[in-house]
Structure formats: structure tokens, C-alpha cells
Design a protein around this nucleic acid. Sequence first.
DNA 1: TCCGGGAAATTGGCATACCAAATACCAACA
DNA 2: TGTTGGTATTTGGTATGCCAATTTCCCGGA
Lengths: 241, 241
Amino acid sequence: MSSKAVVSKRWQGGENGLTIERLPAKESFKSKAYAALKEAITNMNIYGSSEPMLLDERDISERLGASRTPIREAVAMLEQEGLLRAVPRRGIMVVRRSKPEIIEMIEAWAALESMAARLATQRASDEAIAELRSLFKEFDLSRIERDRCDEYSTANIAFHQALIRLSGSSMLVAMTENLFFHVRAIRHRTIFEMDRAQRSAADHLEIISALEARDADRAERLVRDHTLRLARHVESHVDLD
Amino acid sequence: MSSKAVVSKRWQGGENGLTIERLPAKESFKSKAYAALKEAITNMNIYGSSEPMLLDERDISERLGASRTPIREAVAMLEQEGLLRAVPRRGIMVVRRSKPEIIEMIEAWAALESMAARLATQRASDEAIAELRSLFKEFDLSRIERDRCDEYSTANIAFHQALIRLSGSSMLVAMTENLFFHVRAIRHRTIFEMDRAQRSAADHLEIISALEARDADRAERLVRDHTLRLARHVESHVDLD
DNA sequence: TCCGGGAAATTGGCATACCAAATACCAACA
DNA sequence: TGTTGGTATTTGGTATGCCAATTTCCCGGA
């Protein structure tokens, strides 16, 4: 019985440092297909043409060298995630969000990130906040030289994601990741214009200050207003549909 | 060409009373399985036992009288939704959220609902707000007689959902629906105790007042604090795991 | 009594086949 | 020429079968 106990101890690896996670379990075609499709959708300029953008199951299964079954499962997942929509006998189409929908997403983003800011003032370490400030500096410096809209947009989203991570809430991180995915897709439509960049940078600085001052109410308000301002901007200056 | 116009007029049924909607498209086994499984999970007392709660593909397909394929697709969707988790050779298990996860969910809920309150002060009609007040009255009256915890919890969530709908944002509605699903699942663990009911009712009244006064900041703050208080309550008084 | 190892059964992933619905195509007729 | 009716083809949904990875079970040996 002593030997049994030892074996048990060895393999359950609870208190000792040995952490074995049930090895990677080489990913299935299902997950490969999921990743491939999501990647494809990401790199696709969804709002480029106004055509329906259809996908074909059999075509995809051939390209990926797999049968329809795992592809269909991946499509089902992406459908659940709101990226695809499969209508019978009409094909699988990439979902194009309407302008009101995009605005609602940005408002939800404002809600989640402002809460993240509040939580961050209470939970983030000084070091973590300092890192955010240094991230901002890098961003700002690199931005001065080049003024490509896409780069600004990417760095901008990176800043916001870093802030949200400061909250320590993986739920907030996950929920906003989904939102950013959709918002990113319309970056080409110049959501972020250069004249907004200056204002935006100033806002970011203020936000960092509020975090450093551990001022929950102020940080929350600044983040909320900053993002809601983007919503209003999109509402009046971006033309979808 | 005159005949074409007539035919066109007849079948497109624009201005005349003929409204044909592209008939219901009878739902597939996939969606039936999805609905059935979700229903089953809903009615399941997830946090009752501490055992893994496994499901079996072949068993489910037999019960539903369908093959494994549509069941697997439904499972893939529910997995994406975070309700199930399928690990190879170990079965499909209902995801049990840890206490920190539940708390993060409630915090996200607080974020989204407080934003909903803010938007509602700007967008909801007086009538809609009045309806919320009457909903509250019904709830309160019916609650006085019976003090079953579940009923209170249900009515409580109904109130919050009604408030969120006032924002007019279907995005906020959808995102919180997911959260409520998980929170509802642990209602049995007496998240909502009766001593909280009185305080809660008072809070709700205050919130309604703020909405009626169109006071965005106050409504937002009241909702946020109300829900964050629940998070703190769960943190210190509810025992999961 | 306990351990080890190998056979047998289970199970998840995937490929393939089939069917019915829906579309596209086409030819004949008005 | 345009419409109609019917046929061929496509396509999505589902069922089924196979295979390999595991797990389970069981029996012989220590």
C-alpha cells in the first residue's frame, strides 16, 4: 500500500512542482479548420466589396485536405461565434455587421474597458501600470515617424487590450477580444483618422495618470468617455452599408 | 411586357396584402440537438454534486433519435459557447465555473448593465421606464407573500434584463444573456439570500428613480454598485468548488 | 495479494455515401 | 422572344462505417 501511495503522489503532481497537463493532444482537423477559417476571415477585407462573400463547404474541405465533417463542425463553431452565417442552399456567408451593430459593439467595449480600468486601479501592481506607460511611450515614438492608419489602429487596440489585462479579469479580456475582432475588421474604413490620433494619445496619457493615482472613478470615466467618443465618431463619420 | 409586369406584381407581393415570408425552413437536427442539450443543461443542477457530469455522444444520439453527426455539431457549438468541454477519450463534460470565474462574470455583468443604464437614461421612452416601474411593483407584491429563493432570483434577473433592454442595445442584451445563464446555474447555492432582498428592492427603486430623472451618472453608478455588491457578497459568502 | 502486460472493448475523429430539397439549365411551346 | 415545364445538377443535412488512440478488463506471474 505504501507503493501505491507513492505512485499516486508521483502522478497527480499536486504539491510538488511537477505540472503535467495531459500533453498537447495534437490538434484535430476540426480545430485546424477552425483556426484556418478564422485566420482567413481575419485577413479578409470584409467591408471591401458589398457582395455577399460566400464560402463553399466542399471547396474548403478540398483546400484543407479534409472531409466535410470537421469543416462543418468548425463552421458551426464560427457560426455560434457570430462570424459566419450558414443559410441552407445559399451558402456560408461571412457576417457583415451593420453600422448600428458596430456602434453597439463599441459601446459594449466602453462598458467592459471602463470596468477594467476601475478594477485595475484596485488590483494592478505599480509595475504593471508602469509597463503600460512604457508601452504607450514606444507606441507614441514609433508613431511619430510613420502615420499609417493601420499601424495606429493596431497599436491603439494593443494599448486598450493591455489596459484590460491590468484588471486581472480573464472574462473581460475574452469578451473584449471578440469585440475587437469585429472592430478591427472595419479599420480600413478609417475609423481612426489621424486627427484623432493626437487627441487619442492625450487621452491615453490621462488614463495612465488616473491608474497611477489609483483613482477608480476618474479612470473609469476617462476610459468610458474616450471609447464612447469613438462610437459617436463612427456614428457620424463612418459610412458602412 | 405588360404580362411580365403583372406577374411580377402578383408574385412579389409588395403593395398588396400578400405577405409570404420564405417559409420557416424546418429546423435541422443540429439545431434541435443544440436546443435540447442547452435545455438539459439549464435544468441540470450543475453545482449539485461535485462529480464531473459526463455526457456520451452515442447515448445522446440514441435518445434524440438522430445520428452522431448533428449531435457532434451541436456539441461543438455549445463548446464554443463555453457550456461544454469535450476532452478526447474522457467524454463531454458540463463546464463548472470556479468561484473566481463566477465573480468575474458578475463584474462583467455590472459593467454591461451600468452602461445599459446610462444609455437608457438617454434613449428609453418615458413609457418604457414606466413599464419597468410597474414590473417592479408586480415583482415586489408577489414577493411579499412567498419567499422562495428561486422565485426571487428569477424575478430579480427579469428586472435586470428588462433594464438592459431599455438601453435599446441588442448587443448588451445578448452579452448579458450569456452571463445570466451561468449565474442562474448557481442560484441554488443561495447567491440571493432573503436578507439581501430588502436591500435589493430598495436599490431597484433608486435605480428606477435615476432613470426617470434621466440622470445618467447616477443611474450608472447605482447599477454598478448594486451588482458589484453582489460580486463581493458571492466572494465572501458563497462556497463553490 | 499485488503487479504487469496484453487482449478486448470503447470512444472520438474522420471519411464517405446517400437523400431530399432547391437551384440551374434547357428545350419546347405560345 | 419570352415563358413554362420538366429534367439535370448542385448542395446541405444526415447516416454509417472505419480506424486509431485509449481505456478497461482479465489473467498469469511474482
